[in-house]
Structure formats: C-alpha cells, structure tokens
Design a protein around this nucleic acid. Structure first.
Lengths: 167, 167
DNA sequence: TAAGATTGAGAAGTCAATCTTC
DNA sequence: GAAGATTGACTTCTCAATCTTA
C-alpha cells in the first residue's frame, strides 16, 4: 500500500490521473443518469427513480420488501421512501401491506400492473445501459470498472459518525 | 424475476459482470458523494455543491465565469445556477459582475473570502478523495477507471433530443 | 424505551414564463 | 425575434417530530 504517514497533516494533492479519474466519475455519472432518466421518461412517462423501486421489488421473495429494507437498497431515508412510494401507489404499480409479524412495519409489494410496467420499461432501460455503458468499453475496461467501483464502495460501508480526524 | 423474451424482441439482457459494473457505478457514486458532502459539511459547514462552484471559479481566468459557462461545467440548468449562486453571494464567497461586452450576461466572480474558504476546504475534500477513491485502488485500476468513465462520458455528449429509435 | 413508518417544514433542483439586452 | 439570466410554481428529497406498536 502506498501510504504517506504524514497524510493527516500534510495535504497531498491529486496528480493528473487521479484528478481525471475523480472528475470523470462525477461528470460521467451525472450525464449518464440524466440520459437514462430522460429515455424512460420520454418513452413511458416513467422516472428512473420509480423504475429502480420496481427492479428491487421484482428481485425480492414474493416481490415485496419491508420499507426499511427497500430504503436501504435504494439509499433513501425512510421519509424519502414513503414519499416515493406514495407516487407508485397512486399509479397502482405498488401496494402497501401490513406486516403480520410486526404490525409497526409495512411491506411494499409490486402489483400485477407494476410487473407489467416493469416488463415494458426494462428493455428500454437495458438498451440504454448497453448503449452508454457496455458498448463504449472493452470487456477488460468493464471488468476493471466494476472491480474498482466495488472497492470504493467497500471503503464506504462504515457508518457516517464523524469526519475522520487526525488520529 | 426472469422476463419472457417475447416481451421484448431484440432486448439483449445484461450478463453478470455487466450488471455488477452498472450497479456498482450507481451505488458507489451515491455513497461516495454523500460521504464527501458530509465531511465538508461537518468540518466547515459547507456543501459539496458550493465547493464545486468555488473550484470551477478558481480555475478560470480572473477567477470569474459567465453564468451560462459555469452552469454547463456544473451540469446545472440556468435557473439552478442562479439559485445556487444566491447562497454563495449571501455568504460573501462569490459576487456578480455585469459583463461589459454583453450587458445581458453576468459574471460569477470569486471574492477574496471565497478564495480563503476554498483554500480551507480543499485539504479536507482532497483528503476524502484520496481516502475513498485513490487509496482503495491500485494504480492500474485508477487509470482504467478514468479511461472507462471518459469513454462513457464521450458517448453522452450528443444532445438530448429524443430517445434513440430502432435504427 | 425503542423501532418502523409517516408527516410538516424546509432545501435545492427543474421547467416554463418573463424581463432585459442583443 | 432570440439569447442570458432570473423568477414562480412545482417536484423530490432530507431532517426532526410524531404516532403506533414491540
């Protein structure tokens, strides 16, 4: 590991490659998600955010998840998920169910209409991912991209309690 | 859930590696930016969004940029930039200047206080980028990550006019 | 008392309309 | 009329407070 022991005190700047990689992450991500959202929106009137809810539900047992569980997968706060689900419930794509074993909790469950909508949206979304993420990359680049991003993610799983101090 | 191929004639699904890379991009990015924002917020009371404004201004000639130019670099709409700048102006970190050559336009210019704030924030931000992006990766991974993301970005520069048709 | 979900208040962005200047 | 910037109305999220059940 390339560890500068004085890093806590001395600012070590970013070299060119580091700067480029970091900025590319921010910029490419923003443009990519905007494009994928636009394509779903303009073809089916559906947001990428709502699509993601249906994707996660479709992968769950019984196509239903506890609110807290779904919120974690979507990286949303509880309040945020409640409000996002309201829209999906009004559209009839998802329904709430009481949890029989813990009546504080509730399930978000995909409806048949939600499944049909997901099946209509998935080809459009996947085509976008292929077009903008898969096709521009070599197979090697794709593999390393995934590896690198999972390594970054792994370094972030610790809870946010405080900024790392010099100790 | 497995979708019937008849639901989408020419849809080529994503294989495991493709799926992993795409999801890692979304999830790692979200966690990373949340963390970097949190660290700036908790140490200096500054948002990552405001920090980005100062960074772009600091790199410009005269440490000032036209609003439209700055909006494009930040991937913001004109209205969004106007509102973000309001906050920075109230804090005294940025000021508006009339453009002498085209009085429709205006400049966003960094103030001395803005520069001082940027210089205080930069070490914190850079330390976060190093900690969460640079250090978890090998040098080779970092280089390929940057290459791959720039390739993705390059495929997205075309204007958003319509969803790509079957052609 | 605490945990799961929702609600009120507010932050920060978008879109469309507007005002000013070209 | 068109371009640069701002504003009004709205969307979608967060945080903190609340309500319900464990």
């Amino acid at each position: 590991v390339n560890f500068d022991a004085s890093a806590a005190q001395d600012v070590v700047w970013l070299n060119h490659d580091q700067q480029q990689a970091w900025r590319a992450l921010v910029e490419a991500h923003a443009r990519l998600l905007a494009r994928l959202d636009f394509e779903l929106q303009s073809s089916l009137g559906m947001s990428l955010a709502d699509y993601q809810v249906l994707v996660h539900l479709s992968e769950a047992d019984g196509q239903a998840l506890r609110m807290a569980d779904l919120a974690e997968r979507l990286q949303l706060t509880p309040g945020g998920l409640t409000r996002r689900l309201n829209g999906l419930v009004e559209l009839g794509l998802v329904e709430r169910r009481v949890c029989p074993e813990d009546r504080r909790g509730s399930f978000a469950a995909m409806t048949p209409s939600g499944l049909a909508t997901l099946e209509a949206a998935a080809p459009i979304h996947v085509a976008g991912v292929r077009r903008y993420v898969i096709e521009p990359l070599t197979n090697d680049q794709l593999l390393t991209l995934g590896e690198a991003l999972r390594a970054i993610d792994a370094g972030l799983v610790s809870p946010i309690d405080a900024a790392p101090g010099p100790g």
